[in-house]
């Protein structure tokens, strides 16, 4: 198991850097080329959400990313340090809900507070609630997603299949 950890100041410009690093590590871990766009977009969404939460509540704290080669899976964990109730003023995302889902639906145990993710209806979406929008996109993109509240903030864990034999 090999892990790359990245911490960055919560600035929008750094989200692109995070995407590039995640894509590079995913490729190195054996994620299929066809899935790299999904990794790039999902990691970007998770980092954008974390950056916005930090800029509102703790701009001095860095956003953390862990990129782990698990052999047959490539896992990304984006962790923020914004207070759990911070999500309420971003709108659309229940503050204590944890999300555990696959592309096929709920996935089983993933945290102490589980609830199926209910995307906001498309007709009502606008720039006022990017947090829920981003999480909806992540849920649609990643092969496996778990969103859970931690003591310090929110953790978005995503993973994709990797092919160790191809390395």
């Amino acid at each position: 198991m090999a892990t790359v950890e990245v911490e960055f100041t919560p600035l929008p410009a750094h989200v692109r850097t995070a995407r590039l690093v995640a894509t590079a590590v995913a490729r190195r871990s054996g994620v299929a080329e066809a899935l790299l766009d999904e990794v790039r977009l999902a990691v970007g969404e998770a980092c954008s959400r974390a950056v916005e939460a930090h800029r509102r509540h703790c701009p001095a704290e860095p956003v953390k990313i862990e990129l782990t080669d698990l052999g047959e899976r490539f896992e990304v964990v984006v962790t923020d340090s914004a207070p759990p109730d911070a999500e309420t003023d971003q709108g659309g995302f229940a503050p204590v809900a944890a999300v555990s889902a696959t592309n096929g639906g709920n996935r089983g145990p993933g945290g102490s507070h589980e609830a199926p993710f209910q995307p906001v209806p498309a007709e009502t979406r606008d720039a006022a609630f990017p947090a829920a929008f981003g999480l909806a996109v992540i849920t649609g993109l990643a092969d496996d997603v778990q969103v859970s509240s931690t003591d310090s903030g929110l953790s978005v864990r995503m993973s994709w299949p990797a092919a160790p034999a191809g390395r």
Binding site: R40, S48, R125, A127, P130, G134, V137
Partner: peptide, 12 residues
């Protein structure tokens, strides 16, 4: 590349 922030701008 387009993310949800961009989608939000288009919806706006």
């Amino acid at each position: 590349f387009l993310d949800s922030t961009g989608l939000g701008v288009l919806v706006g």
